[in-house]
Design a protein around this nucleic acid. Structure first.
Length: 598
RNA sequence: GGGGCUGUAGUAGAGUCGGUUACAACGCCGGCCUGUCACGCCGGAGGUCGCGGGUUCGAGUCCCGUCAGCCCCGCCA
């Protein structure tokens, strides 16, 4: 039987007690983190979200409270009243914020008893993630995830303050909305009132925020949940949070300038780190050429080199053939890695294979400058010299080559570059290297669907100078889209939108979206564009990914209070679950028979 | 849809070549202990080795299947 709270009021958080409070009477409430029973004296480490304070219970001083403390177990919820006292000489704990003081407890109330938790709630015990997720409310008592969520709150507040001070308005948009085309799979919600019809949960508030610009709100933001029914990854959840912004009467530079300063505020507030502004900007073509991927990690160099022209006529058929067929031969120099074993090189080859590379050629530069390599014999002295010069090869270096179609050669070697950066310890977790990537291609060809797809989304404006290309060579057209990349991770992206109905219609044409289909899917946007749409553009940041980097979390689950597993289930609530036959009937839904026998 | 890793007391692990009663730690329960702070000492309880099948005289160990969690490819405008 527990005690009642009665009229006790908490006076302090546990973690806030310092030497300044010595002599004060305090009332603390929290969870028993640990109890140390010395037979006589009992110590209780009392925990709340701010930290831990040591309660001291002396049988001579307060036998009743001490007696109660004998029955206390871990994770009991207790309230305690006592006097803040200095710890006796030699017993100060310098590892604790509150280590100079303890509370001499006069009265103790057990507010709630607790079963022994299924795992220990200390920072030393590694617990399997499925167990952590099943008992998430206990896992969240642990300092690590709790401090991540506290920082997340701080970041959200910083965003609100910054954007508010810059004349943005926070406006909510519908969660029950309409399926959007071109994007990821939608989560669907059946309508009871409109049998047979479905809402879709938003993948982003894209259309609504553009309509808010047409409506004249000028600057909008929302910290908003978005939904995508796609497979999960370490940095992808089916529901995630975006910092979503849209502005009128601006160009790309305006948006990037305003937003990078918000990012700087976030880093100052969360980590007390000062960022250098403005952040560097690079075109898509440049980052692909130099790093192979559109989200390069700039914490280290190791740039890719295009050596296609150097090997186009060489004796190594693999390279020569690729060059002849319009492919790309790219190389990077892993400085000092000539020591890699055959096994490691095989692993790197397998790694490149994941991204479609059919092989990975390598060269070890020996101490005497000679080439140790299965392919060296195919090259002339001049070719070797030219390659060595281009790659700045020095004794001890490891040169790696991928020859393939441009897409595969760039991606495979680019990913390999990132992989090596990690492996070689070149990715300092306390270094933050940003880059804006601009001038993305507007369209990409989808071989399966036999049509162009929007790289960003179908409302993205082409570069002014590339508008003529829409007719002549749409695949070459570049867009006014931009991504913000941090340490190899895309943390945000956006674009200037099309605000001209005629251009928007041409865009739909290019995408193979017929007039009827366009009208049916987002006629309201096309209509709106005809009623005076200002030039506008925006951006959305993935709050979860930003938080991962700020906290150093390896999984997005560590920055979300109640995340889902890789199969998009919640181990705690056991969502998703089946529903009553009655609910289905009301929705006019009958489940198709499963292919396995019931 | 595909590739890979993991699964042994409450927890996280060890378990050799297939061989006696599956180990020690932390936690838990009981006892002792008045300055600890991941307290200490003594004792105790606690196991369908994820699940199902197979091989074998004998399976935690080998094989097949299956379930769950994780990482990756595809997918994610």
């Amino acid at each position: 039987m527990s005690d009642i709270l009665g009229d006790w009021k908490r006076s302090h958080y546990c973690g806030d007690l310092r030497a300044e409070q010595i002599g004060e009477d305090v009332c603390l409430m929290g969870w028993v983190h640990r109890r140390r029973d010395h037979g006589g004296l009992i110590f209780i480490d009392l925990r709340d979200r701010t930290g831990i304070a040591q309660l001291a219970l002396d049988p001579d001083r307060d036998p009743e409270a001490h007696g109660k403390a004998e029955n206390v177990r871990n994770e009991f919820v207790v309230a305690a009243i006592g006097k803040v006292s200095p710890r006796p000489e030699g017993t100060v704990n310098s590892k604790m914020k509150t280590g100079e003081v303890e509370i001499e407890i006069r009265e103790l109330r057990i507010l709630s008893e607790a079963k022994t938790p299924p795992f220990m709630l200390d920072e030393f015990t590694e617990v399997a993630e499925n167990l952590r997720l099943k008992y998430r409310y206990l896992d969240l008592r642990r300092d690590s995830v709790q401090s991540n969520l506290i920082m997340r709150h701080k970041v959200a507040q910083t965003v609100r303050n910054y954007l508010t001070n810059n004349d943005f308005l926070e406006i909510e948009t519908p969660v029950l909305t309409k399926s959007t085309p071109e994007g990821a799979r939608d989560y669907l919600v059946p309508s009871r009132v409109n049998l047979g019809e479905f809402y879709a949960l938003p993948q982003s508030p894209q259309l609504f925020k553009q309509l808010l610009m047409v409506a004249g709100f000028d600057r909008y933001f929302q910290i908003v949940r978005c939904f995508r029914d796609e497979d999960l990854r370490a940095d992808r959840q089916p529901e995630f949070t975006q910092i979503d912004c849209e502005l009128s009467f601006v160009d790309r530079d305006d948006i990037m300038t305003i937003m990078e300063s918000m990012i700087a505020d976030i880093f100052k507030a969360a980590l007390d780190v000062d960022l250098d502004l403005p952040m560097p900007r690079m075109t898509y073509a440049e980052v692909i050429d130099r790093y192979g991927v559109d989200n390069p990690d700039l914490r280290f160099e190791m740039e890719l080199q295009d050596i296609t022209s150097l090997v186009s006529g060489c004796g190594f058929k693999v390279f020569a053939n690729v060059a002849a067929k319009g492919g790309l031969v790219k190389a990077l120099n892993a400085k000092g890695c000539a020591t890699f074993s055959r096994k490691v090189l095989d692993d790197l080859t397998d790694f490149a294979g994941i991204y479609g590379a059919k092989g990975l050629a390598w060269v070890k530069i020996q101490e005497d400058g000679s080439w140790q390599s299965p392919i060296a014999k195919f090259f002339t002295e001049e070719e070797l010299k030219a390659l060595a010069e281009k790659l700045e090869a020095a004794p001890g270096d490891l040169l790696l080559f991928v020859a393939d179609s441009p897409g595969i050669a760039n991606e495979a070697l680019g990913r390999l570059r990132g992989h090596l950066g990690h492996k070689l310890g070149l990715t300092d977790p306390n270094s933050y290297r940003f880059v804006w990537v601009t001038d993305f291609p507007l369209l990409e060809w989808d071989g399966e669907e036999r049509r162009h797809m929007a790289v960003h989304h179908p409302f993205t404006a082409p570069l002014d100078e590339d508008i003529p290309l829409l007719d002549s060579d749409p695949g070459k057209a570049r867009s006014k889209a931009y991504d913000l990349v941090l340490n190899g991770s895309e943390i945000g992206g956006g674009s200037i939108r099309i605000h001209d109905q005629a251009v928007q219609s041409r865009m739909f044409n290019l995408l193979g979206i017929g007039e009827e289909e366009a009208r049916q899917k987002f006629g309201f946007l096309l209509d709106a564009l005809e009623f005076g749409a200002p030039p506008h553009g925006g951006i959305a940041f993935g709050l979860d990914r930003v938080m991962m980097i700020l906290t150093g979390a390896e999984s997005i689950r560590d920055v979300i209070a109640f995340p889902k597993t890789q199969k998009a289930t919640c181990l705690m609530s056991e969502a998703p679950g089946s529903v009553d036959e009655k609910q289905l009937r009301e929705l006019g839904i009958r489940l198709a028979a499963r292919n396995k026998q019931a």
